[in-house]
Design a protein around this nucleic acid. Structure first.
Lengths: 226, 226
DNA sequence: CCATTGCCATTTGTATACAATAGACTCGGC
DNA sequence: GCCGAGTCTATTGTATACAAATGGCAATGG
């Protein structure tokens, strides 16, 4: 049996990400407890975690509301994510082992397969994409970076954007992941600032996001050569 | 009367930052509750917040330990802080108002007074330094950025470093803050990508930290022209 | 009509009791 | 002596009762 607080966390998080409770809405501990069929104690626990995730906020008297997202917030979240993912890639380039490179390649290959067919398997693509990013973050070996980034990658606006990717977006992501992989030098060739004539650490790709004039996100990209 | 959970949070946090409980040590909820003279409930609350601050970690069975810091962790924390403070300064440059500029100048002036005398007032310097950074972050108007950064600025290693600044470090900080202030264009001159012949947004200073060979931090700087 | 005050309902904060669990330890069996 | 099963203890997880505080609302006075 999983813990009640974990169930509550997952349930409330899903409610927020899916838009089941609207941004700006107040949510009371008791109401959530009833919906999750647990007592207030694990709900309180879950709310603290969701607060750290920035999915909820508290007013001055500790009442809880679902976070709202202004256009400025969204741009900011993209900028921050871009910076942090770049940092992850830089660190990963210095630390990733042969195994890690294999795993990255496998995930990206699966992404390619999922999208280079008549009827793309979006769900499969997104899952391997997520795993790819997770693997890069893993190779970066920075719990702090992982902790900060996890607060950003699953924000509602980014999550919803991913749901609306079309095939071109997906192929672009795939291609850019390839570039990142090529930029990672193999293990053991990382001394003296040079890797086979190329400077080391390499000039790495970074994430990019495109915001349309209306504030709708067209393409949250992943790794793009800058 | 302040809330018990706030008191517990502050008390435990101080224990950790001051080294009163050693890094790596296990801490039980009940023991903390006794030391803080509150029940376990507010302690649990405090622990969730400290977890988000990365001051504690949990093992697989949810037991709580004070975070440990490897040299790699420390470098990483500095890099991350540098990135995030830079981002804050960039955003602040586009958003800060006349009032904000005045406040920044006042804090830096106070820092200068505190350190350009025979017997520097370190505590006063550090307080205004903190306020200066807070004001920049405030002007950046990004709750997300503020949330991420707050997880990094008060980490034990950085905190202890600040306690050991000597007068030269302090003067260097002061000077570099001046440079940052000069780089901020006044309100109303921020259109068209040019501010009186200088490109806008300006190439902004960023934070820098110096790590000695032994892993001891010599100077955590604040804003340095890059 | 508006502002102020006091009351009430709602919501969060805290303590405590008890349940569940993980890790340590003991005691046999081999 | 070593290994494993079972037990025991320390620690965390959950429910619940009650306390405190906040915000809304209505009554009252100007």
């Amino acid at each position: 049996m999983t813990k009640a607080s974990d169930r509550a966390y997952a349930a409330i998080r899903t409610m927020i990400l899916s838009g089941d409770i609207m941004p700006g809405a107040q949510i009371s501990e008791e109401a959530l407890a009833r919906r999750c069929a647990v007592s207030r104690t694990p709900v309180r626990d879950a709310l603290r975690r969701l607060e750290a995730d920035l999915l909820i906020r508290r007013n001055t008297s500790q009442r809880v509301f679902v976070s709202e997202w202004s256009r400025d917030d969204i741009e900011d979240a993209f900028d921050l994510r871009a910076m942090l993912e770049s940092q992850a890639a830089r660190r990963a380039a210095e630390r990733i082992d042969a195994d890690g490179l294999v795993r990255l390649a496998a995930h990206n290959a699966a992404m390619g397969e999922a999208v280079h067919v008549e009827c793309p398997d979006i769900a499969r693509f997104l899952e391997h994409n997520r795993a790819f990013h997770e693997a890069v973050l893993d190779a970066a070996r920075s719990p702090r970076l992982a902790s900060l980034l996890s607060r950003l990658v699953e924000q509602p606006i980014i999550w919803r954007t991913a749901q609306n990717y079309d095939r071109d977006h997906l192929r672009r992501s795939y291609r850019e992941h390839e570039e990142l992989l090529e930029a990672f030098p193999p293990e053991g060739r990382r001394v003296g600032g040079v890797d086979h004539g190329r400077p080391y650490p390499p000039r790495l790709p970074c994430l990019s996001g495109c915001l349309s004039a209306a504030g709708r996100i067209h393409h949250l990209n992943l790794y793009t050569v800058r």
